[in-house]
């Protein structure tokens, strides 16, 4: 059996970002592939029900960040492929910058020691 790794729940917003980044890096994928890749990249540290991906995909599609079309998967079965749009790429860049900034600020706080504040 698989090792039971520690898993943590993830917010839907971050899941959307992960989807966008995955599509950015790996190109058009179908739903299952995205789920697997996210699993891999997070190193199985995240506990995400794969199914929760689909509402997120729908939301992104409605917002125009990704576009969907039917295509053939690896084993020649019909699957729905999602790809990043230009608007999605812009959104990705904007949100990445936002994350980096947050991480940077929080980082400073986490290395604070009592002496620094005297």
């Amino acid at each position: 059996m698989n090792q039971i790794k520690e898993k943590r729940d993830v917010l839907q917003g971050t899941l959307a970002l992960m989807v966008l980044k995955t599509l950015d890096v790996l190109g058009p994928l179908h739903g299952y592939a995205i789920a697997r890749r996210i699993e891999q990249i997070s190193g199985d540290l995240l506990s995400v029900n794969q199914g929760t991906l689909y509402p997120v995909l729908l939301k992104l599609e409605q917002e125009g960040s990704i576009a969907a079309e039917w295509g053939a998967s690896e084993n020649n079965r019909k699957a729905r492929f999602y790809r990043l749009t230009r608007g999605g790429r812009k959104q990705l860049q904007a949100e990445s910058r936002g994350w980096e900034q947050t991480v940077a600020i929080m980082g400073r706080f986490f290395v604070l020691k009592a002496e620094d504040l005297k």
Binding site: G51, Y54, P55, L58
Partner: peptide, 17 residues
């Protein structure tokens, strides 16, 4: 199991749709 509750997911999907 890995997918999660199909009906629950469908409902959430519908809520978005």
């Amino acid at each position: 199991l890995k997918f999660g509750g199909v009906e629950a997911i469908k409902e959430e999907y519908r809520a978005q749709r």
